[in-house]
Design a protein around this nucleic acid. Structure first.
Lengths: 111, 111
DNA sequence: AAAACTAATCGTATATTTGCGATATACAAA
DNA sequence: TTTGTATATCGCAAATATACGATTAGTTTT
């Protein structure tokens, strides 16, 4: 048997989908790029950059935090955000492997 | 001025978010992996693999197709699916650049 | 022409996402 | 202790996503 019906998805697929979903909005891509390029920055700076209201930015930040891609630390009265290095590396690797594996097995055929 | 308020997101961010969103579900990750590893396969084979109903698989396939990541061709009475090579490469590159750029600018600091 | 098969679409229910203004919270500054 | 500043959270509305069974559409086989 080459393949068999899955009772559920693999943990790796679930994890990768979780990261991908967190990245599935232009605002969150922009936030991640900003954080990666500026190393760290304050919430307020992000709000200034994006074409959405403060409450909405805060919501996007929460989603990225819940997915584990970023973290924040209090520097009263501000909050400093940055990439969460461990999960960032996990995500990077998951996606890198994903496309690497596909390049190995995929032929140049089209259907 | 280092940065300025965006009136809207960059096309690249929108495109990347579109791909990421399409990949933001375990079923769709599983489908993409399956297609990449099997080169091409029939819709029915995908349905057999996944723990969800045929109608739901069809819906996920439609989303992947709408995002441009896969394509299908009729081989009556079946439909053969495969990766859409052009957009696949565009997506791969977007993600690769994304993490490469971040590795360039990110220090090993944490906040 | 009828029956069988594959896959898309419809209709529906429920859950999640997105966005905002308003408000609350937490801390610093006065 | 009051005031101000920064950010999270609340409450809401609208849109989108997820899942399924049932049905339809398109082809092939009989």
């Amino acid at each position: 048997m080459a393949h068999s019906k899955l009772t559920d998805y693999k943990e790796e697929e679930i994890q990768m989908a979780r990261f991908a979903k967190a990245m599935g909005h232009p605002a969150r891509i922009a936030i991640l790029k900003l954080l990666a390029s500026m190393d760290t920055c304050f919430c307020g700076e992000i709000v200034e950059e994006l074409p959405i209201a403060q409450a909405t930015v805060s919501q996007h930040l929460k989603e990225l935090k819940d997915a584990g891609l970023i973290q924040g630390s209090i520097e009263a009265p501000k909050i400093r955000y940055c990439i969460e290095p461990k999960n960032w590396e996990i995500a990077r690797k998951l996606f890198a492997d994903f496309w690497y594996q596909s390049s190995l097995s995929m032929q140049n055929t089209t259907c």
